[in-house]
Design a protein around this nucleic acid. Structure first.
Length: 571
DNA sequence: GTAGGGTTAG
């Protein structure tokens, strides 16, 4: 039955005489609660009150549960007080509802206290009570308390059931505590609780995400040897895991394996494969799978379309991306903020930021709210189009729309300003960031060091580099390369060499960029021996001359300033 | 007639 029908029935019941019993009203409220329409239940409860239809213990219990489910624990508590005044003693069910409310709100300490109070008041907590609290503890990142509670409930004579183990296993796997989860599987076997496929799939998925894929396959085999048959979800976890590691043949072997076993792949299976192919630049394969899934009568959904749109955008095939966008709408599958952001990014990357902005307005008109990523994309788009003012305006809009900037937002701002010759403005923002305790990452510093070097302020870049360790940030290869390049361009070769030595002593490994920058600097200085030395070292690290170095050497060759052996050395 | 959990994909 639909919600409307049930509500209609309520009005009929209210008018009919004699009035139906409170039990009938409770049944009706309960059915609405099962549809998760908690607000409706609450409002019908109020109407009953006004019409003089007295609540009983069950009515209160249902209403308290609905208040808790809709994050209005304080109202639930008020109702509990009211019902107790009327002489109704709450039972374990009502109190467990309340417990659930505390757990889902930010009141985990009250949840813990409630269970203690229940015991003091002579209630015997059951598996539902404990499971609810365990779930709450995981929600609040208190995994060890949750695990300890499983043991404590056993001590209190309450055997964990499948629900309890499900909650714990899931909580542990999400955190990557795989060993603890595996221990629990053993415990379940010892206490003769049948481990079902969902529990196994949970653990297999956890291993996929936090351990080696082969370990997941081993558990998969172990499970099947015990006579528990994998289902599509189990396969989906493994397939997406293999895809993430680029193990295409393993993934497709699993796909044919499941088809052969008549475990039908579903939309999730195909989405995992399509998305992974797209991200790896294999758009043709992704499109083939898309055709394949349609042939199997599996309907693409918003994930499928968004992945394919992303694929077209990555290859700058914006017309096809837009076509796919229109297609999904025509199929009744409506784009969300991710779909729009993907498309907006495609347009921005293609220097068509105005069209990106148009899409942003379109999505806002449809009631979709841009998130941090959406705004970041547009800000970056305007900077790339050298329109600092519009970029700045989008940033201001972001703040006034209440969307929180991330460190990525700031990095985009700093980078955009630096690249558009507005280093002074970037410095103001950078100082603001330092003062307001925003956690800067190495990318932030790299942007500023590069900006300073480009603006001819290599000394400032050097100072900033020296401040890194004070701020607890490790320089990476880009930091070194940027500063080395800045020093070379300023013809401060000795400092550049010193930095290169420091890098080799206690920094990240030099890469091709490091060597090429130094080699070009040597050549500019006319230091043939030094550059030959560096080239030798670079080659021994299996790097080769890059385009700018080769062009430079070729030019010098033509000018007769170098002999041909130099070019040969480079590659 | 009232309470709890768990798996996959952007």
């Amino acid at each position: 039955m639909e919600l409307d029908d049930v509500v209609d029935m309520f009005s009929v019941m209210v008018k009919s005489r004699p009035r139906p019993s409170i039990i009938d009203f409770n049944k009706l409220l309960s059915s609405i609660a099962k549809m998760k329409k908690h607000a409706v239940v609450i409002s019908l409860g109020e109407q009953m009150q006004k019409l003089g239809i007295r609540h009983d213990l069950y009515t209160y219990s249902i209403l308290i549960n609905c208040f808790c489910r809709s994050s209005q624990v304080s109202f639930a508590l008020a109702l509990l007080g009211k019902m107790m005044k009327l002489g109704y003693e709450p039972d374990i069910v009502t109190l467990s509802s309340l417990l659930n409310g505390f757990c889902h709100g930010k009141r985990i300490s009250e949840a813990v206290a409630l269970v203690d109070q229940m015991v003091e008041m002579g209630y015997q907590p059951n598996t539902v009570t404990f499971t609810t609290l365990i779930h709450g503890l995981f929600l609040h990142n208190k995994a060890s308390e949750a695990v300890a509670l499983v043991d404590r409930m056993v001590v209190k004579g309450c055997q964990p059931d499948l629900f309890t183990y499900g909650a714990v296993v899931n909580g542990l796997c999400k955190r990557g505590d795989i060993d603890l989860a595996l221990n629990l599987l053993k415990k379940m076997e010892a206490s003769k609780i049948e481990i079902n496929i969902v529990i196994y799939s949970t653990v297999i998925d956890g291993i996929c995400k936090h351990r080696h894929a082969n370990d997941a396959v081993n558990l998969f085999k172990e499970m099947e040897n015990k006579g528990i048959r994998a289902d599509v979800v189990t396969y989906n976890s493994l397939i997406s895991c293999f895809c993430n590691y680029g193990r295409w043949s393993d993934a497709s072997r699993l796909l044919s394996d499941m088809i052969e076993r008549k475990i039908n792949p579903n939309v999730v299976t195909f989405n995992a494969l399509i998305d992974a192919f797209v991200k790896d630049g294999k758009l043709v394969e992704a499109e083939t799978l898309y055709v394949d899934m349609i042939q199997r009568s599996i309907d693409p959904n918003i994930f499928t379309y968004s992945s394919l749109i992303n694929g077209f955008c990555m290859h700058d095939r914006l017309d096809e991306a837009k076509q796919m966008f229109k297609l999904m709408v025509s199929k009744g599958c409506f784009p969300n903020v991710v779909t729009y952001s993907t498309l907006i990014k495609g347009f921005c990357k293609s220097k068509r930021v105005e069209e990106g902005m148009g899409l942003f307005r379109e999505m806002s008109q449809k009631g979709l709210v841009g998130n941090t990523i959406t705004y970041n994309t547009l800000i970056q788009g305007f900077f790339q189009a050298r329109d600092c003012d519009r970029a700045q305006k989008v940033y201001n809009d972001m703040l006034s729309d209440g969307v929180p900037p991330s460190i990525m937002t700031y990095n985009i701002l700093l980078d955009g300003l630096c690249n558009n010759g507005r280093i002074e403005k970037a410095l103001v923002i950078f100082e603001y960031m330092q003062k307001s305790g925003i956690e800067l990452n190495i990318v932030t510093y790299n942007i500023m060091i590069e900006g300073m070097c480009k603006a001819g302020k290599v000394e400032d870049g050097w100072d900033l580099f020296c401040s890194l360790s004070l701020n607890g940030v490790q320089p990476d290869v880009i930091t070194y390369n940027t500063l080395i390049s800045g020093l070379c361009n300023k013809r401060i070769s000795q400092e550049a060499d010193a930095l290169f030595r420091k890098m080799k002593e206690d920094g990240p490994l030099p890469d091709s960029g490091t060597y090429n920058t130094l080699i070009r600097a040597c050549l500019r200085d006319g230091d043939k021996a030094g550059s030959a030395e560096l080239i030798k070292e670079m080659r021994s690290c299996r790097f080769a001359g890059d385009a700018s170095t080769i062009i430079m050497v070729t030019n010098m060759l033509h000018e007769g300033r170098l002999d041909k052996s130099f070019l040969d050395m480079l590659s």
